[in-house]
Design a protein around this nucleic acid. Structure first.
Lengths: 212, 212
DNA sequence: GTCTATAACGCGATAGAC
DNA sequence: GTCTATCGCGTTATAGAC
């Protein structure tokens, strides 16, 4: 009962250690691969013994879960910052750029978020929540374009959103699989991102929108 | 020196064991995840001791390599069969369907081929060769459409091919990540495959092809 | 209570001797 | 083909230090 609410020095120190564990985990995954994360290696880097990590995370999968949540929050926030720094008419494009840029700069977390590379790992509802919010934001961006007459209302249907995410995920996954060392700016596939956006606008062009 | 060329009964038996190992490996990866393949589990299923597997494969990564090659060959052949069973005008679409259908039916191998889920695994040149052939086939399909006036010549440029593979890979990866239990026929994302094909034809429409 | 260490269990990949 | 052995892993139990 005494452990409930106590935002004192100790819990701050504890949170700091948790963040360090996550930082080191990401760093190791970057060099060794997402699925090659080793608790022993994390502990070594932190000057700890492996069992000590269990004070902070109940299992290895719990670390993956925390990383999933971290990544989803960062993507969501990157999109929102991009939105808040752009004119309404540019917000969809700005958010898409911010998303792509973040993914290229955080490929390890991107793999964890969008592929399923870890056997047995399913994100918890809490970890998944910010991802849902990010998707809701995307829907809002599309709705805004519908309201301003730039897109047909069908763009915000389930199919429209699925098409949008499939095309962006496709460019991204080709880029990461074939040219992972590239950046957002110079990637061979990355430069197709504006192209698929243009194709999306074309397909859901208003007033004379057509479907076969 | 006596082991060089001897296509007799023994080498047939040996090849049979190799195929069994690969079959069991795929079966286990289907239930446990691509990265969770365990040589001990494979050996158990085959009634062998784990070290015996090293008579057939020098390491676990060599098994992944053989599976990569197997998958690439099967995709290439599925595309070619689809091509040979279709009218020239339908061959691109038929090959795309055959490709998608194979991927949904062989998700484990698809992950191995198109994502990089195994730390330290890079396909060998021999394993990669059939994948290169499959890509060359795709280029030939596109060229055929260009020659028959259905597509602008730019469709076979590096950008055109990258766009084509990115869109198909995107639909596929969204389907596999979000609805892996679906089939080629009923997948929510899978039904976007004809849509992206239509969008591709639209973008590389000949005679009045335009680019911003 | 909170953190850390040590010891130990079971499992995995793999090398070497038979 | 097997058996034995080594090493590293995730994890648990336990006990001592702050």
């Amino acid at each position: 009962m005494s452990t409930a609410a106590a935002p004192d020095r100790r819990s701050r120190r504890r949170q700091q250690t948790i963040d360090e564990i996550l930082d080191v985990s990401v760093a190791l995954m970057e060099t060794e691969g997402v699925a090659a994360l080793s608790l022993s290696a994390v502990a070594r880097r932190l000057g700890m013994q492996p069992p000590s990590l269990y004070q902070y995370f109940p299992s290895k999968l719990a670390i993956y879960d925390a990383l999933f949540q971290r990544g989803a929050e960062q993507i969501r926030d990157a999109q929102r910052e991009a939105r808040d720094g752009a004119e309404p008419a540019d917000q969809l494009s700005a958010a898409m750029n911010a998303f792509s840029r973040w993914c290229m700069a955080n490929q390890v977390l991107t793999q964890l978020l969008f592929w399923r590379p870890i056997p047995g790992f399913e994100p918890s509802p809490e970890a998944f929540a910010p991802a849902v919010e990010g998707l809701a934001d995307l829907k809002a961006f599309l709705q805004q374009e519908v309201d301003s007459g730039q897109l047909d209302p069908r763009a915000t249907s389930d199919d429209g959103i699925a098409l949008f995410t499939a095309m962006t995920a496709g460019v991204l996954s080709q880029q990461m699989a074939n040219e992972p060392q590239a950046t957002f700016e110079n990637g061979r596939f990355m430069k197709l991102m504006p192209v698929v956006l243009e194709m999306f606008y074309q397909r859901y062009q208003p007033t004379r929108g057509k479907e076969k």
